[in-house]
Design a protein around this nucleic acid. Structure first.
Lengths: 165, 165
DNA sequence: GCGAGATGGTTGAGCGTTCAACTGAACTGT
DNA sequence: ACAGTTCAGTTGAACGCTCAACCATCTCGC
C-alpha cells in the first residue's frame, strides 16, 4: 500500500506511486477542499438561505448576456451533467429565481433566464460570500499563494480538458 | 456584483470583494476541484467498482493500527458527519469490506474493522488511483507546484481549524 | 450514589445527484 | 423526401447525504 521508494518512476506493475511528500499534500488537499466547501456552504446557508450550488448557478446566469444561458452552456460552465442541471433548474424555477424560455433558433433548445427576484437574491448573497472567500482563502495564502493556486488550477484544468474527447 | 476597485479593503458595507485576479483564480479553483474529483471518481469506478468515498474510508482504516478505528475517529479523519459515516459503514458492512465491533473500553463506542476482503479490494484499487493522481495532478504541476499546494492546503486548513470552536 | 448533562452512535424522513431510458428536433446521406 | 443518427433536454427510480430525533452510556458535581 505504501510506496517503498521515493522515486517517481513506474514500478513493475506500471504504477506511479506517490512519494511521502505528495501523499501528505494530497491528503491535506482533500481535507482543505472538503472543509472549505463546508465552511462556504454553512455561511451561504446561514446568511442567505441559499445553497452554494444554487449560488453558483445564479451567478453564472447573472454574468451571461441577457442574464440567460442555454441549458447545455450552463451545464458545461458548471461542470454539471444535463440531468443534474435540469433538476436543479426545476427547483430554481419553483423558487421563482429562474424561468425557462424556449429557444427560437433551435427547437430543441431551452434558455434558463434569471428573474429579477433571482438577481436580487443573488445580489444580497454576494457580499457575504466574497468576504468569506477572501477571509478563508485569499487573505491567508497571500498574493504569492494566489498566483500559485492560479497556476495549479490552470495547469490541472488544461491537463483534464486536453484528454477529454 | 463586480468589484469596482482593485484594492482589498472592506467597502462601506464591510465587504471584502475579490479583485479580478482572485475571481479568476477562484473560478478555476472550483472547476479544477470538480473536474479532478469527477476524473478520479470515474477512474476508480471503472477500474475497481469502488466509489472514491468508499476508497478513502477503506484507506483510512487500512492505515490504522489493527486496521480498525472508532467511528468518531474515522469520521473526524474523513471530515464526515457521524450520521454520514454510520450510513456509509453500514453499506461497507453489507459489501463485506468492514465489520462493526464493539469497544470494550467504552460501552457507547463502536469500532469499524477492515476485513480481509476489504483490504484485498483496497489493495487492488490503490495502484490505479495512485497513478491517476500522479498523472493528473502531481506530474503536471511539478515539484514546485507540489510545494505550493502543500503550503496552500496547510495554511487554509490552519485557518479553518483555528476558528472552529 | 445519583441525577443532569455531555458524548458516541444509530435511525428514518426528505432532498439532491446519478443513471438509464425516453421524447422530440435537427442534421446526414441517398 | 425520408430513414438513420446525433443532439438537447426531461423524467423517474435508486442511492447517498443531511438533519433532527432518539437511545444508551459515560462523566461530573453534589
Amino acid at each position: 500500500m505504501a510506496p517503498n521508494s521515493k522515486v517517481n518512476e513506474p514500478d513493475v506493475t506500471g504504477t506511479r506511486w506517490l512519494d511521502a511528500d505528495q501523499q501528505r499534500v494530497w491528503r491535506n488537499y482533500i481535507a482543505m477542499v472538503r472543509m472549505l466547501e463546508e465552511a462556504l456552504e454553512r455561511q451561504m446557508q446561514a446568511d442567505s438561505g441559499l445553497s452554494m450550488n444554487d449560488y453558483v448557478l445564479l451567478m453564472q446566469l447573472s454574468e451571461a448576456p441577457g442574464r440567460r444561458l442555454r441549458m447545455s452552456e450552463l451545464a458545461a460552465d458548471s461542470v454539471y451533467s444535463r440531468s443534474r442541471l435540469s433538476h436543479a433548474v426545476s427547483r430554481l424555477e419553483d423558487a421563482g429565481w429562474v424561468q425557462r424560455t424556449e429557444c427560437p433558433d433551435d427547437g430543441r433548445g431551452t434558455f434558463a433566464q434569471l428573474t429579477d427576484t433571482g438577481f436580487a437574491v443573488l445580489a444580497a448573497a454576494a457580499p457575504g460570500h466574497a468576504t468569506t472567500v477572501h477571509d478563508l482563502l485569499f487573505a491567508p495564502i497571500g498574493a504569492d499563494g494566489c498566483t500559485a493556486l492560479g497556476f495549479i488550477s490552470d495547469t490541472v484544468l488544461a491537463t483534464l480538458t486536453n484528454q477529454q474527447p
